[in-house]
Write a protein that binds this DNA or RNA. Structure first.
Lengths: 187, 187
DNA sequence: ATATCAATATATCAATTTGATATATCTAAT
DNA sequence: ATTAGATATATCAAATTGATATATTGATAT
């Protein structure tokens, strides 16, 4: 497998459940996974091609004859082995890339009202995401006994817990910046 | 300024406080900023070159003659304007890229012990980062009245608050996976 | 019937980022 | 005098991003 291409593992993980086309994969990633990992056609299609060459996945013939072009992929034994091997590796890369925090860090360059507004924009965004995740959570709770759903549930509660922490921080941060709080920031 | 190059803004933000070389900039980014934004020589040096051409920053002559090559950059009036303009833009990109959550999501492919171990690896990593951030926080609290330090303080407390939420989630997640908790996950 | 819009589907491209590596100098300690 | 580590600039292959091109199919409205 390509040394540093993380999209490969996302694809293998998704294919471990069902056969999917590149387009299907994009849709799956844009769903619940999108909260912690991104993918684009620009990396999905090249990854599918090279993993097929390497024998980690295989092309399935389109069942319906004469229909629109559609290339579903199937995970091979080697692919499953590569997926398991990655899951068992200790080394992971976890990265935050928050432009909001960057803007906050350089807040001294503009008026405080600008920074407060940026926090409010972030707050609204978090609230929107939180609403989506809470819907996911409710739906998952109905089927938590089913295979694998406990893992989806845990990623969703991770999102909910962190977003709720963000909201609390937003409240404190706005108070500190509007001067309504003195040093006792922890309280 | 280059349309989609976020490193430009990081550089402009850092240069708004003091003149810096590419190497200095890398060190600054690897410090407190590294928790929410990354940079590498591979994007810093090209960004410095092109921003100098665009007149957003300017090269300062190395003061000591005959000394080692050293190219400190200074922000221009146009550069400051570009920085302020970015800070006032509403649109931001905030992204999580957590391989740990990816592994959790695909946990069904391996034994539960593997997933629990992955959570524990994450937990240890979070604890290490939390210790560093708490040190930053203590140091910043001594100088909170100084210009701009309130902004650094807020980014640090953001990190602390979210990492603490992560730790709580880790405890709950491990309980759920070891079967020590039934449905009442919220409690 | 047919026009139109949204969804399905594959594919490619320029710009950017990442992570590693190459090269060289200076400083401090042994 | 030698070595190790920090300083410093620079480049490269591989990967990612975000946009765009192209074409088909299915559903809705006229």
């Amino acid at each position: 497998m390509a040394k540093d291409r993380k999209i490969d593992l996302v694809i293998l993980g998704l294919l471990s459940h069902e056969d999917l086309t590149g387009y299907d994969i994009k849709k799956r990633i844009d769903g619940a996974i999108g909260f912690f990992w991104k993918g684009s056609f620009g990396n999905i299609y090249p990854a599918l091609s090279s993993m097929e060459e390497e024998g980690l996945i295989s092309k399935k013939k389109n069942s319906k004859t004469g229909s629109r072009e559609r290339i579903p992929y199937h995970i091979t034994t080697r692919g499953t082995k590569a997926l398991r091997s990655w899951l068992q590796e200790d080394q992971v890369s976890n990265e935050l890339r928050y432009e909001t925090l960057l803007k906050l860090y350089f807040g001294g360059v503009v008026d405080r009202s600008v920074t407060i507004r940026n926090i409010e924009i972030f707050e609204e965004d978090v609230k929107r995401n939180l609403a989506v995740l809470n819907m996911f959570k409710e739906n998952l709770e109905k089927v938590l006994d089913e295979e694998d759903h406990v893992f989806y549930y845990l990623t969703v509660t991770f999102g909910i817990d962190t977003y709720e922490a963000y909201l609390k921080w937003c409240t404190k941060a706005k108070k500190l910046l509007t001067g309504k709080a003195e040093m006792a920031f922890d309280g």
